[in-house]
Design a protein around this nucleic acid. Structure first.
Lengths: 232, 232
DNA sequence: TTAGTTCTTTGCGCTGGCGCAACCAAGGGG
DNA sequence: CCCCTTGGTTGCGCCAGCGCAAAGAACTAA
C-alpha cells in the first residue's frame, strides 16, 4: 500500500551543512547579512553583477530566465534550507537568472570574500556546494530530455510531481502544494502555455487526480500521476 | 570587420588545471589509468555505477541520455582537455549519461579514492571542477530556455554555432566542424527531427551560409547565422 | 566492380498544442 | 457593498514541424 508521504522528500535533505556541527552554524550565519524579501519583489536580477550568494531561511524563491517579449521560463524554486547563486562565489560574473520571492522570504547573504573565508574554514561546505550543483545539473538534464521527448501532458505531470515532492504538505485529503502556483507558473516551468495547462488540469480534476483553485493545487492521487507520467 | 577566428574559443580555455604548475600534471596523470576508446564504442553507460571520472587527452566523447524506443538526446560533447563524470567523485551514484567515443579517443581515468587524494593535494582542482559544473549548468539552462522559447530553425542555428565555437577548425573557406556530425546528431542535440534538420541545412546551403556533406558541416558565414539566431 | 549499408533529401499529409477571443470566478480595497 | 483587478476556462482555427515513404548519394567490404 502506498502512503502519501512516500511521495514527499524528507525536509532536511539538500544538506548544505552536512558535516558541519550545529554549534558552528550560527557563527556562519552571523558572518552574513540577513535580508527580508517581500512577496513578489526581486532579490537579484539576471545579468546583474553577482556580488552575493544566498541561503534561504524562510519563504521561497523563484528563479527565472527571461526571453523575448516578457515571456519567462522558471528554472527552479528554492526552498528553505537551500542555497542559491553559488556562481557569485566562484566566478567574477553576472547572475544567470532572476530570483524573486514567491512569498515573504528571509535570506542570509554573503559576499565573495566572506564566503571564501568561510569555505576555507569549513572545507566540507565546498564539497556540499559542488554536490548540490551536480544535483541541479542532473535535474536540468532530465528536464531537457523531457522537453525533447515527451508531450506536454506528461511534462506537466512530472512537473507537478517534482514540485509536490519538494514543496508539498501532506493533508488528510492529499498533498497540497505549499505556495501560490498559478497555471501560468506551471506553463513557464514546463515550456507549455497557460491555456494548455488549464485544459489539462481541468481534465485531471474531472478524473479526481487533483483538486485545484485559484493559484492552489492539491494532488489527491499521486500514484495515478506517476503512472501517467511513466507510460504516457 | 569580423574574422572567422572571432567565432572560435581559444583552445586552452576550460582550464581544469588552472593554477596547477606544468610539472605537477604528469604526476597527476600517472596516478590514473590511461585508456583507449575506439570510435563508436562506449566508455560508460547511463545508470551504471559511477566508479571513475575521466579526462579526455585526445579524441572526443559524446554524452547522451536515452529515452523510450531507442531515441536519444545529446547532452554535450567533451573535447580534449576537458573532464567528465565528476559525479563519480562526489556521489556514490550512477552515471546520469552514456559516454561514447565519436572518434578514436584516449582518456585518463581515476577512481574515487585516487581522485579524492589528488583533490586534497591540489585544492584549486576542486574549485576548477565546481567552476566547470556551474558553467555546464548555465549552458543547460540556456538550452532549456531555447527549447522552450525558440523555434527549431533558431535552435539549430545556435547549436551549430555552439558546436562550431567549441570544436571548429578554421580553414580558408570557413570554419569546419572537426568531427563526424550527422543530421541525426544535430537533431538529437536540438530536440528536432532528422528530417527537419536536413531541410533547414539544405536551405542554408542554398543561401551560402554553410556547406555540408555526409556527416560534415562547414560554416561559411557565421555572422549570418548569429544574426539569424538572434532576431529570428 | 558490385552489393550492401548507412546517411541524406524531399514530397506530402496529419496533428499537438499554440494563441486569440470572450466569458466566468475569486479576491481585495475603499 | 460594489468595482476593479487578476486569474481561470473553453471554443475555435491555424500552422510548425513531425514522421512516413521513397528515392538518391556516399562510403565500405569483399
Amino acid at each position: 500500500m502506498n502512503h502519501l508521504s512516500d511521495y514527499l522528500e524528507s525536509p532536511i535533505r539538500s544538506g548544505i551543512f552536512t558535516g558541519i556541527s550545529e554549534e558552528m552554524r550560527p557563527k556562519i550565519f552571523s558572518a552574513g547579512q540577513r535580508r527580508f524579501v517581500k512577496a513578489g519583489t526581486t532579490l537579484f536580477h539576471e545579468a546583474d553583477a553577482a556580488r552575493q550568494c544566498y541561503f534561504v531561511q524562510k519563504g521561497r524563491l523563484k528563479l527565472t530566465k527571461q526571453h523575448i517579449e516578457g515571456k519567462e521560463a522558471i528554472v527552479r524554486y528554492i526552498n528553505p534550507g537551500e542555497m542559491t547563486a553559488a556562481v557569485a562565489v566562484f566566478k567574477e560574473n553576472t547572475y544567470p537568472v532572476t530570483a524573486s520571492a514567491v512569498e515573504d522570504t528571509t535570506v542570509v547573504g554573503w559576499d565573495r570574500p566572506t564566503i571564501l573565508k568561510i569555505l576555507s574554514d569549513y572545507p566540507s561546505l565546498t564539497i556540499n556546494l559542488l554536490s548540490g550543483a551536480l544535483d541541479r545539473l542532473e535535474e536540468m538534464q532530465k528536464r531537457y530530455l523531457e522537453l525533447c521527448a515527451e508531450r506536454v501532458e506528461q511534462r506537466i505531470a512530472r512537473a507537478l510531481l517534482r514540485i509536490m515532492r519538494r514543496s508539498g504538505r501532506k493533508t488528510h485529503e492529499g498533498v497540497v502544494i505549499d505556495f501560490r502556483l498559478s497555471r501560468q507558473d506551471l506553463a513557464d516551468y514546463t515550456g507549455a502555455t497557460l491555456y494548455t495547462v488549464s485544459r489539462i488540469l481541468s481534465a485531471w480534476e474531472k478524473k479526481g487526480w487533483i483538486s485545484s483553485g485559484r493559484e492552489k493545487i492539491m494532488v489527491n492521487d499521486p500514484h495515478a500521476l506517476v503512472a501517467f507520467a511513466d507510460n504516457g
